[in-house]
Write a protein that binds this DNA or RNA. Structure first.
Lengths: 110, 110
DNA sequence: TATTTATATTGCAATATTACGATATAGTTT
DNA sequence: AAACTATATCGTAATATTGCAATATAAATA
């Protein structure tokens, strides 16, 4: 059906899934990495850095913004995007949980 | 087109994307959380825990396994799945990078 | 060996995602 | 104001994902 049964899962599970899904594309990974590397807002140049057409990049930026992973504002012919800590903080706890588990894991049954 | 242009991104970016994408579904989050909570292999009961039909659960388990996030073996009428550290370790570095950035971030321009 | 049990696989319908050309929008520059 | 620039949105085609009924598979049990 292609439709996820979100109503049967908890809000937290759905929220985590949305965040991870948003990260789950190489172009969006590249955008995030670029923001980290530049240590400043993206102001235009990201389109030239990515191997994708401008509308496609714009769409990926929108998805990252919707998920809460980046924030930014666009005014006329100039945009300004940067990392949104909120989204990343939310997903951080989940990986902390996994890390803790792995560190103390003893039973390697599989 | 629905097809990701993987060839234009680095292996690391593609690998990260595959891992994040695999995590990006509430059912698969639920499976991972269940494995963490039980602190042992899943041996059958996961199908009864999830609000999805058995073939759907089997499919999600397969995707997690392919991504390298869980490992397991199935023998006839009994299965045994558990967390695969390898996959989670790979994605850990990425979030470490983001965390470091957020911690020392000064310029809140957006 | 026939039945039961627990899992995977197949096939398919519904929906979502990816990508981009064409176009719209809104500042900036001449 | 007209042209330019950088971005978003629309529309659409190609492909991927989600979910499940039906079926296959393989071990366990009667």
């Amino acid at each position: 059906m292609g439709i996820t049964k979100t109503e049967h899962f908890t809000d937290e599970q759905n929220e985590l899934a949305i965040l991870a899904k948003a990260i789950g594309h190489p172009a969006r990974i590249a955008i995030i990495e670029y923001l980290l590397k530049m240590d400043s807002c993206i102001c235009g140049d990201i389109v030239n850095v990515l191997p994708l057409a401008q509308p496609t990049v714009s769409q990926h930026l929108k998805e990252l913004k919707n998920a809460g992973l980046i924030k930014g504002n666009v005014e006329g012919n100039s945009a300004c995007y940067c990392i949104n800590e909120v989204g990343f903080e939310k997903i951080k706890g989940f990986f902390q949980l996994v890390s803790n588990y792995i560190d103390k894991k003893k039973n390697h049954c599989c």
